[in-house]
Design a protein around this nucleic acid. Structure first.
Lengths: 217, 217
DNA sequence: TAGATTGTTAATCGATTAACAATC
DNA sequence: TAGATTGTTAATCGATTAACAATC
């Protein structure tokens, strides 16, 4: 990547979508694609595609377009699918269980290595029903410090109730974790070197309601 | 609302966040707030707050600021929390269960009225553990047409596996449902009068990974 | 070569921020 | 009234789109 210019947030958010479409093309055995054809499939302009990709390098070839295999690999590399990020889930309620059983993380470079809760009813039980997943045995939240010191953990997925979110977030940040995937409705205030992705489900639903009510696309 | 100018998407996406902050102020018994003080709490500019709010009306008063009670009510009204949107969940896997048990929907004007699945192991069981929720008995997906014709349904929450998403989405749209909350990684292509909110969890996680890897906030 | 399509610069568009007169 | 803060216009910034020379 060209480090001289900063990649805008809008571009970053489009990368996973490019990756999905290219993976589909790959699966369908399509060898090459022009920005124009991809733009029609994705519903964005060809200009935007070329601008976006050129933030990272000249992956195309004049008169030919983009080779699907290599462009898919490039975007995968940019997104770090070869990185094997290690993640823990904190909060083994319904959402924690949903994440533990989510099928698509491993193929994208994300490995869940532990899941924690405070409830004695849950501790010791398996969060992932099928398979031999040892990591899915729910651990006591009190053991998290020990766990993080012994194991590489890149990401904490927070699915704890609203009122505990801040405290848990501060705890894991104090343990050196630099990335939080936050499912609570609370906005976290943390040091600037911690990256946070919020999944504010209520917000998303309210936007849907607003748009439905105002019939605005 | 002033219908002459179209509200931009960026503004709409900020509305639930305003609502959350105002609800917190309300809970804390704070009577009035200036755009400047709110801007400091939310981490955005006071100018943006005033611009955003003035899309919908002049809710403030010079020299005073905004009354928390009435601004909270106004934004709630704009977001339609008094609307009682009726929703069904399609797909009673882990994510469907998580949504069925999500505590905050009712207070925001969203009521879940049914949940459907294809699996005979699930049909007839309750998706919501506690309480007396009759609606949470999982129904056979084959009965959805009958259900939607008998009951008002505004929103379909789709938590079905990737390969079934398109078919299910087309089915519910054919039944007249105009709003989809889509948890599948698939982008849906549907008529223009159907509003869709996507919750692409993998995309969100990949953005987190990218930002962590590139330490970019 | 001729045609196609990129990479990249320039133009446009829209969103954010700044400024300030209006006014409570 | 004097001070504070809005509503709103103008300026700025950044992202998207258009255009086209470069080149495969």
């Amino acid at each position: 990547m060209d480090k001289s210019k900063k990649i805008s947030f809008a571009v970053i958010r489009r990368l996973p979508r490019y990756y999905r479409y290219l993976s589909d093309l790959l699966r369908d055995g399509i060898e090459r694609i022009s920005s124009k054809e991809l733009s029609e499939r994705m519903g964005i302009t060809a200009s935007q595609i070329r601008q976006d990709l050129n933030n990272f390098g000249g992956f195309g070839q004049q008169g030919y377009g983009y080779n699907v295999v290599s462009l898919n690999a490039e975007i995968g590399r940019i997104l770090g699918i070869d990185h094997s990020f290690k993640a823990i889930i904190i909060g083994a309620g319904n959402m924690g269980h949903a994440l533990a059983n989510y099928p698509n993380f491993a193929g994208r470079g994300y490995e869940i290595v532990g899941i924690f809760d405070i409830s004695s009813d849950l501790i010791g039980t398996k969060a992932k029903e099928d398979g031999d997943a040892d990591w899915s045995v729910i651990r006591n939240i009190d053991t998290i410090e020990e766990f993080v010191k012994k194991n590489k953990v890149d990401i904490a997925m927070l699915t704890v109730p609203y009122q505990f979110t801040s405290a848990v977030a501060e705890k894991v940040v104090a343990l050196g974790i630099k990335a939080l995937w936050n499912f609570s409705a609370m906005d976290l205030k943390l040091p600037g070197d911690v990256v946070i992705e919020n999944v504010h489900l209520s917000d998303s639903l309210m936007v849907l309601g607003f748009r439905l009510h105002n019939l605005q696309n």
